[in-house]
Design a protein around this nucleic acid. Structure first.
Length: 145
DNA sequence: GCCAACGTTGGC
DNA sequence: GCCAACGTTGGC
């Protein structure tokens, strides 16, 4: 079963543009230090997709990522407790979907982004994924590349 | 094992 | 800059 995800980053710390510059090889998504977030990372499989959400000054879903390496020990974690995955940028949303847009859409009221706003790695349902892709100007559900 | 204090995240 | 949510720490 293909699952969908949402990964959060403050653009000052790691932005979509930086991610794009890493190209097809991708880049380790490190620094997760929360056990719920870790549990979600552990479920990720190569080939699955995730939204890239800018928290803080961005507050919008700006692009689509693909998992290119399954979970492995986070090299930045000295306690060897947490895990990382590698992700690559697939494509930007032609029209970023802002947090305000998500709040204004009743069909997205159950999103983890609203219910658990501090969780940095979140699951997204297939229905939520399709709707946000459409809101963002992607009709192919982020699958056309 | 409980709980107060504290630190961090992230929206506003 | 403020504050709510929430995870972690440490005293008992």
């Amino acid at each position: 079963m293909m699952a969908y995800w949402l990964l959060k980053s403050e653009p000052d710390a790691w932005s979509w543009d930086q991610q794009v510059r890493k190209g097809a090889k991708g880049e380790p998504w490190t620094g997760v230090r929360n056990h719920s977030a870790k549990q979600n990372l552990m479920k990720m499989k190569t080939g699955e997709r995730a939204f890239f959400y800018h928290s803080g000054v961005g507050r919008a879903i700006v692009g689509i990522l693909e998992v290119v390496r399954a979970p492995y020990p986070d090299p930045t974690d000295p306690t060897a407790t947490f895990v990382a995955v590698d992700v690559r940028a697939v494509e930007p949303l032609p029209k970023p979907v802002a947090l305000a847009d998500i709040k204004a859409e009743p069909r997205l009221a159950e999103m983890a982004l609203l219910k658990h706003s501090r969780l940095s790695v979140q699951p997204v349902t297939a229905a939520q994924w399709k709707l946000i892709c459409r809101m963002g100007g992607l009709n192919g559900g982020g699958s056309r590349l």
